[in-house]
Design a protein around this nucleic acid. Structure first.
Length: 102
DNA sequence: CGCTTGACACCGT
DNA sequence: AACGGTGCCAAGC
């Protein structure tokens, strides 16, 4: 199941780190970033998979459940150490590269 | 089984 | 640089 692989990748995302749909799709050797979101949208393993750590390639949060709980994502990410400014993740590129913010 | 929709991404204006 | 339209892959109906 393609989606199962997606959940697996997302589960691999460590705290304080974020990933993009495109990155995950690419990680699965596919370009179906749309399918990644489609699978998460249904969210068969809602609390099991940190889907809130998955954002757009632009650094925007994208959506969550119904595309209106974006504020919830911000709160969850903030709890992980990933803050959001102006609708975009702070030091987004750094969190993608896994580099120290210092 | 076939068409439509969808938590995105990229190119063009 | 910002906004809009189109494209890709898979799941849902």
């Amino acid at each position: 199941m393609f989606a199962a692989k997606v959940y697996s990748e997302i589960s691999k995302i460590p705290p304080g780190r974020v990933s993009t749909y495109k990155a995950i799709a690419q990680r699965l050797s596919t370009k179906a970033y749309r399918a990644v979101g489609t699978a998460l949208k249904r969210n068969p393993d809602a609390p099991r998979v940190p889907c809130h750590r998955v954002v757009c390639s632009d650094g925007s949060l994208g959506g969550y459940m119904g595309s209106m709980n974006s504020s919830l994502k911000v709160s969850l990410l903030a709890a992980e150490g990933v803050f959001v400014k102006d609708g975009k993740i702070v030091d987004f590129s750094q969190k993608l590269g896994g580099r120290n913010a210092s």
